[in-house]
Amino acid sequence: MRKTLFFLTAACFAILSCTKEKTDYEAEIEVVVPTYDEFKEAANIHNGIYDISIEALNGTFYKGYNEIRLKITNSQTNEKTSASSVTFLPIRSDGEQQNTSCPHQYDLAYLTAENYFLGYVVFTNESSPNGRWEFYISFTIDNQTYTVKETINVQEQINKNLHMATFTGKDNEQYFIALVSPQRPKVGENELIAGIYKFNKPTNPPTGDFPDPSQFSYAQVSDYTLQLDPRMPEPSMGNHSSPNNKDLMQQNDGLYHGVVNYTMTGNWTLNFIMLNQNGKMIKGTEVSTDFTPGVEGVKSELHIDILF
C-alpha cells in the first residue's frame, strides 16, 4: 500500500511539474513581440552649424543588427547637406577603460535619391553602468572635415528572432552571426537573412588620435556558406526538424539568405555549420537525425535559439 501511495504521489508530482512547465512555455509564446518597419531618430548630434541625425528602426538601438540612416542638416538654412564622405565608428568602454568595438560599416554609403547615408552596426552588448557605447563620426563638407562624438543607449533585443552569436572559429578568428529577418516568422517557409562578420586583427600598433580605426576593423565575410538544420529541442518535440530548408548563401546586399521552414509555433533552434569560401568548416557540429522524445534535443556547437 505504501508503495502504491508513493507511486501515485510521484506520478502526481510529475504531472503537476509537466503542467507547470507547459503553462510557463505557453505563456512565453503568447507574449506579443512587436515588429518595426518605421525608421525614427535614435540620436541627434550638433556640431557648429550642422545637425547630424541618426535613424534606426523604432528610433532605438538594439543589441544585434541595426540598419542606420544618417542625415546632415544645415541648422541655419534647415536644408539637408550633402557631405563628400562620412565615417562611422562605435566604441564601447567598460569600467576598466578597455575599449572595444563591434561589426559596423565604417564608410557609410550615400544614397542620392533618399538623401541620406546608409550603414549598419551589430552591437554585441547592451548599454550598462559598466559598459558605455559612443559613436565617433567624421564628415567632410566643402573640403573641411568635422568630427563629433556622442554617447548612445543600446537596449536589450527581446525579439529572439533577431538574436546573434559570437564565437571563435577553428581558424582562430573571431566571428559574429546576427539574424536580420524575419522579425515575426510565420508557420511555413520563411526567408532567413543573417549577417556574418569577422574581426580584422590589427597588424600594427595604434597611431594618431584615439580612436585609430585600424584597431577596430570588421568585415562582412565573403562567399561563405551557413548550413542550416532547424530543430524543436523541447523534450516533447523529440528534436524534430522540417523539410525544404535552404542553406544561407551570400547575396548582392552582402547579407546571407536562406529558407527556414517552421512547421509550428514554439521553441526552435537554428543549428549551423559554417564553411569558408574553400568549403572548410569554421564552426559547427552535425546534429543527429534520431527522433528523441522525452529528451532535450542536442544542439550544434554553433546555434541560435529562437521563439515565435
Rank of each mutant, 00 (worst) to 15 (best):
Y146W: 12
G64S: 10
N278Y: 12
V259H: 03
H257L: 03
S93K: 15
H163P: 01
N47W: 02
Y146S: 14
Y25R: 15
P206A: 10
P90H: 14
D142W: 02
C12G: 09
S242R: 02
K22W: 11
R132V: 12
E21R: 14
V260C: 06
F117A: 05
F135G: 09
F308M: 11
P211F: 02
V298Q: 05
Y197R: 14
R92F: 12
F88N: 05
T147I: 11
F135E: 07
I91L: 14
M281S: 06
V154D: 09
H46M: 13
A109Q: 13
A11D: 10
R69T: 10
K299C: 02
K63N: 04
I45H: 01
P211K: 07
N244W: 03
K63P: 00
E173T: 08
S217E: 14
G284W: 01
K3W: 09
R92E: 07
Q251V: 06
S128L: 09
K20H: 06
H163I: 01
V259F: 02
N172Q: 15
A83W: 08
G64N: 12
G131F: 06
S85G: 02
V148W: 07
P129G: 10
M264P: 00
V121L: 10
D305Y: 08
P205T: 13
A56E: 00
Y65V: 01
I158L: 13
F61S: 09
K160G: 09
T147S: 14
F61K: 15
Y197G: 12
S242L: 00
P185K: 01
D94P: 04
L270G: 02
T285M: 03
V260P: 00
P103C: 07
F123G: 13
I158R: 15
T4L: 13
K22S: 11
K186F: 05
P213E: 03
G131V: 09
K149P: 03
P233I: 03
D212R: 04
Q251S: 11
V287G: 02
G131H: 11
L307I: 06
P103M: 05
P213L: 03
A27L: 15
A178N: 14
T263A: 07
K201F: 08
G297N: 08
L307W: 03
N204Q: 13
L192M: 08
G59W: 06
A10Q: 10
T87A: 09
T77P: 10
K22G: 09
Q157T: 09
L307Q: 11
L192A: 00
V121N: 10
S101N: 05
N66R: 11
S128N: 12
S93T: 15
F13S: 12
I137A: 14
K3T: 11
E234T: 04
Q227W: 06
L108N: 04
V148D: 04
M264N: 10
E28L: 14
S236Q: 11
G297S: 12
F176Q: 09
T207Q: 12
T81D: 02
L270W: 04
S241P: 00
I52T: 13
T285F: 02
K186L: 07
L179Y: 01
S242W: 00
G266N: 04
L57Q: 08
T151I: 13
F308Q: 12
L192S: 01
L179G: 01
N66Q: 08
Q144D: 09
D24C: 13
Q227M: 08
A10F: 11
I49S: 14
L70C: 03
D24V: 09
E114N: 07
P202C: 04
